[in-house]
Design a protein around this nucleic acid. Structure first.
Lengths: 233, 233
DNA sequence: GACAACCCTCGAACACTGTGCGAGTGGATT
DNA sequence: AATCCACTCGCACAGTGTTCGAGGGTTGTC
């Protein structure tokens, strides 16, 4: 409970990349590669150092600690999200495209799910997306704090929907799990929770990937409808 | 990438608590205490063992590994969420009360934010809540898979909204951070992202705790409105 | 050319972590 | 009395993030 101060990579000057040697960008790029290949648990300072044929502790010259490194790779994720031009397509279409883009980016970088909402998103890429979202909602007709509320609501939905998707996908991806055991557990559970049983039986028929997509669309339309009603008449 | 199989504490028989010695319940209770006092990083098997005046590895008789322990404490959190009786108050009121309850429970157990969506929620308490939510939305008029979509949408919003709240609160809680530095960073940023500046200036005036509450209400009403529109006429 | 100032690297060490193994203890059952 | 079983736990292993301080290499200055 010591009085740690708020800190973020983005609030201090980066080390100059003067020399032809390693740069912060190179390190971040290698880190992202490592994350994509091995997941979050596969990223350790020693392994990252090895990948760059460097000593583990060399990295600490470019980055104050691992959290800073994570902030950097985190912003890299935000950089992959594309915000459509609101002036061309209208805010609802723009919001919808953006939402699907964000979902897709997260799904293609499963490790990012563990960073979202936990790390401050103050990097240039994150700020760019936030800025564009704000423009989007203002163009829709929101004013004042309502604009921020709308942003928060939409992103909460997107992240809240996608993060558990990843956990699910990680568990059931290439890995088989004992169907019999699962079934019997479900049945056992269903006695006590009859509504759940109905749910299990219905989703069992469908392709889970499709179900998740449809669920996302369903929720997205709902959220956008709800936001639209908040617009001043 | 080895073929790990899906597993969960809830899918196997618990160890009998036959003896008068330590029980699984006692361990979970101590773990929750430790988490409340020290946060997620304060929970290690050794420290938990010490708190119970036991060797660290003794716990492994009651629990297969730390993840299982986390699943158990996770379900404890779900147990604190109260689902109002839909038949009495109507589904919108019930959903609203539930949402605020879930938010409050998470905020009062900040460590739970790191577990949500990452761990399977198959414990009895989580199933109970899910079951009640399902009844709630069915009573509202949803049918088939739409019921599940509605649940997913609402919980996504609640979690997606509350989890970042915790990260924020943790950073700015008792800890002061350099206001001047922050300001200058914001100003610097604002040149590139004009919309963000407006946002910063507005939220600066208000009490952040109130802002977050209002934002939650705003989003909640929006989501419920949107869901209501999905009901079959 | 000599010397100092810097940028940068990295090995050793510290204090931790989760967990497998196998020996050991005490009480109940046969 | 012997056997079994529930239960405890010290040791050890393979890792983790991070600090420190000693060095090497390049650059700039007298």
């Amino acid at each position: 409970m010591a009085g740690k101060t708020f800190s973020s990579v983005w609030l201090r000057e980066p080390r100059k990349a003067a020399s032809p040697g390693r740069t912060r960008e190179e390190i971040v790029r290698a880190a992202v590669e490592l994350l994509n290949e091995e997941g979050l648990s596969g990223l350790s300072m020693r392994r990252l150092g090895a990948k760059l044929s460097a000593g583990a502790t060399s990295l600490y010259w470019y980055v104050a600690n691992k959290d800073e490194l994570l902030e950097l790779v985190y912003d890299e994720v935000w950089g992959e999200m594309t915000v459509p031009d609101t002036d061309e397509v209208g805010w609802r279409e723009a919001a919808s495209v953006l939402a699907h883009s964000m979902r897709q980016v997260i799904l293609s970088h499963p490790w990012s799910a563990d960073l979202i909402g936990r790390l401050p998103a103050l990097g240039p890429n994150a700020l760019h997306v936030a800025n564009e979202m704000r423009r989007m909602f203002k163009q829709a007709g929101f004013t004042g704090l309502d604009t921020d509320y709308a942003i928060a609501t939409l992103t909460a939905f997107i992240f809240g929907m996608t993060i558990p998707e990843i956990a699910w996908a990680a568990k059931s991806g290439t890995e088989r799990f004992d169907v019999e055991q699962m079934k019997s557990a479900v049945i056992q559970v269903s006695e006590r929770y009859p509504h759940m049983r109905e749910s299990f039986e219905m989703t069992e028929m469908e392709d889970p990937r499709v179900v998740r997509e449809v669920a996302f669309d369903f929720g997205l339309v709902s959220v956008l409808d709800g936001l639209e009603r908040r617009l001043p008449t």
